[in-house]
Computed example of a mutant assay.
Amino acid sequence: MKLSVAPLICCLLIPAAYADDNGGLKKDAAPPPPHALDDGYRGAEDARIMTIKQAKEMHDGATISLRGNLIDDQGNDKYIFRDKTGKIDTIIPKAVFDGRTVEPDQMISINGSLDKKMTPPVVRVDHIRK
C-alpha cells in the first residue's frame, strides 16, 4: 500500500492555518460607560474584588484583584484597565492571555501585583478570567 506525500503534508499544514489568532485585546466593540460596569455581575467573589481607587492606595507589591474592562492596548504588553472608579495601567504578557481574546465590552477579572515604583502605578497581571 503506497501513501502519497501530498495528503500527509496537507494534514500537517492545516492546524497552522488555525493558529493565527494569538489572543489579546480586540478593539471591535466600544467599552460600556463607567456607570454600567457592575450590571449583570453578582456573587460571593464581590467581597474579594476591589476597585481601582482602593488598589491605588495599597502598598507596593500588594496582591490586586480587579473586575472591569480592558479598554486600550498601548503596545509592548501595556493595556489600560477601567472599572467604575477609574483607570489604571496594566502589564499583561501574551502568555497570560493564553490565546484568548478580550474585547472592550467584555467584563473580566484580573489578578496581579501592584507596582508603585513605576509612575503612574501599574498592575502586573498574572491571571485573567472572563
Rank of each mutant, 00 (worst) to 15 (best):
Phe97Ala: 15
Asp105Thr: 11
Asn111Ile: 00
Leu3Gly: 06
Ala29Lys: 03
Pro31Cys: 08
Leu12Phe: 15
Pro32Tyr: 09
Val123Glu: 00
Val125His: 01
Ile71Leu: 04
Gly86Ser: 08
Lys2Arg: 09
Leu25His: 04
Met107Val: 12
Ala19Asn: 08
Ala36Pro: 12
Ala95Arg: 04
Cys11Ala: 07
Pro34Gln: 09
Arg100His: 11
Leu66Asp: 00
Pro34Val: 04
Pro104Phe: 02
Tyr79Ala: 05
Asn69Tyr: 07
Asp39Leu: 14
Gly99Arg: 07
Ser109Glu: 08
Ala29Leu: 06
Ser65Pro: 00
Met1Tyr: 13
Ala29Tyr: 06
Glu45Val: 11
Val122Ser: 02
Met50Val: 05
Pro34Tyr: 06
Asn69Lys: 03
Leu3Met: 08
Gly99Tyr: 08
Asp126Ser: 06
Gly40Val: 08
Ile108Cys: 14
Leu66Ile: 00
Cys10Tyr: 04
Leu70Cys: 00
Asp73Arg: 06
Gln54Met: 11
Asp39Lys: 12
Tyr18Glu: 04
Tyr79Cys: 05
Ile91Gly: 03
Lys78Glu: 13
Asn76Glu: 11
Ile52Val: 05
His127Glu: 11
Val122Cys: 06
Pro15Val: 12
Lys117His: 12
Lys87Val: 04
Asp77His: 11
Gln74Phe: 10
Leu25Met: 06
Ala44Asn: 14
Leu66Thr: 00
Pro104Lys: 03
Thr63Trp: 06
Ala16Tyr: 14
Lys2Asn: 10
Ile49Glu: 11
Leu114Met: 09
Thr101Ala: 09
Ile80Trp: 01
Thr119Arg: 15
Gly112Asp: 01
Tyr41Gln: 15
Asn111Gly: 01
Lys53Phe: 11
Thr51Val: 04
Val5His: 02
Met58Trp: 05
Leu70Thr: 00
Gly86Cys: 08
Asp39Met: 14
Gly43Tyr: 12
Glu103Lys: 02
Asp39Gln: 14
His35Asn: 13
Asp115Ile: 14
Gly24Gln: 12
Arg82Val: 02
Pro121Ala: 07
Arg42Trp: 13
Ile52Leu: 05
Val123Asn: 00
Leu13Phe: 15
Phe81Lys: 00
Ala55Ile: 01
Arg48Trp: 10
Gly68Glu: 08
His127Ser: 07
Asp73Ala: 14
Met1Ile: 12
Gly43Glu: 13
Gly112Ala: 04
Lys117Asp: 15
Ile92Thr: 04
Gly112Arg: 01
Pro121Gln: 03
Gly112Lys: 01
Thr90Ser: 02
Thr119Asp: 15
Phe81Val: 00
Leu12Ser: 14
Ala36Arg: 14
Asp89Ser: 04
Ala30Leu: 06
Ile80Val: 07
Ala19Ile: 04
Lys116Asn: 10
Thr119Lys: 15
Ala36Leu: 15
Ile88Met: 03
Met107Ser: 09
Leu12Gly: 14
Val123Cys: 01
Ile110Ser: 00
Ile9Gln: 09
Asp39Asn: 14
